[in-house]
């Protein structure tokens, strides 16, 4: 640990305040709890919310994994992982199964999570109703009264325009049959993983100053219509590196002549599969 910093960068009072917000969020699944977001040494949009949540829950015996777009080796993932290695002196890993805390943006790991693990999501815009209702006072009332009709208007509009529900990420869900929640920009492929997951899921939005949570084994249902049920993305091909057919694939452009390949977005999952095959 580097001298001159408090453990995990934030001061103890701030961590305490954030923990209280987290406790409240866990008590009311899907409800957005306001908190006093601090300025962090990285820009808004890079995970200031997630990093504050991680800082307030991490202990010296935790093992941290950070992913960005599913990968452990992207700039943002590396710098946040290094940040906590430096300020909290914790062990870090890229293996999902070994981690106790996983901070993520865009993905939930493919490897099934287990009880005791915590996933911390970085959230850009926590309010699912914001797209149609710009007033915060109004959206709060809508949450209070579970008045969520306009979310279905969005899905209706999708079908009317494209013939199917075209929302593919940040797909709205109802948590615990009560609160409408925006699951941060994860692909809808990951939505089923939110449902009845044994791990604790915490969501932090730094700029918008909101924390919300999905406790372990909570019902999370994606919105849909009876005649247009919720479905996840599928691909005609398998991962070019590990051959996985049931993972979320990224399209990677390989040259200037239209060459491309599809690879697992979860780099740890892909590497593990290759190891096993070898």
């Amino acid at each position: 640990m580097t001298a001159g910093y408090n453990f995990a960068y934030l001061d103890e009072q701030t961590k305490r305040m954030i923990r209280r917000a987290i406790l409240k969020a866990v008590a009311i699944p899907g409800y957005q709890v306001p908190f006093g977001s601090r300025e962090m040494p990285l820009p808004y949009g890079w995970g200031t919310g997630g990093i504050q949540v991680t800082a307030s829950i991490i202990g010296s015996d935790d093992v941290l994994k950070v992913i960005d777009q599913g990968a452990d080796d992207t700039t943002n993932a590396i710098s946040i992982r290094r940040f906590f290695a430096k300020t909290a002196g914790v062990a870090t890993t890229t293996r999902t199964a070994d981690a106790t805390i996983i901070q993520t943006r865009h993905r939930i790991p493919e490897t099934p999570l287990r009880a005791g693990q915590i996933v911390v999501f970085q959230v850009p815009i926590p309010e699912p109703l914001r797209w149609l209702e710009p007033r915060e006072s109004e959206t709060r009332q809508m949450h209070a009264y579970a008045d969520y009709a306009i979310m279905h208007v969005k899905l209706y509009e999708d079908i009317a325009r494209y013939g199917h529900i075209a929302t593919t990420y940040d797909y709205p869900v109802i948590v615990n049959e009560r609160y409408l929640m925006r699951p941060s920009p994860i692909p809808k492929f990951d939505n089923p993983k939110l449902d009845m997951n044994p791990a604790l899921m915490l969501f932090g939005a730094g700029r918008e100053k909101r924390i919300y949570a999905v406790p372990p084994y909570t019902i999370v249902k994606s919105l849909d219509f009876e005649d247009h049920p919720f479905s996840i993305e599928t691909w005609d091909t398998s991962c070019a590196l590990c051959g996985a057919t049931n993972a979320f694939l990224d399209e990677v452009i390989t040259d200037d002549h239209g060459g491309k390949m599809f690879v697992c977005s979860d780099s740890d999952h892909c590497a593990e599969r290759k190891e096993k095959a070898a």
């Binding site: 149609l132 009709a149 208007v153 969005k154 209706y156 509009e157 079908i159 009317a160 009876e226 005649d227």
Partner: peptide, 26 residues
């Protein structure tokens, strides 16, 4: 709502009272 189609504007009230069948709403 000027951001959504005429059909969605008419359908909104139906969805608000629990209609969840797209074809029916339409």
């Amino acid at each position: 709502r000027f951001g959504v189609s005429a059909g969605a504007n008419v359908g909104e009230r139906l969805m608000a009272i629990g209609a969840r069948n797209y074809a029916e709403i339409r």
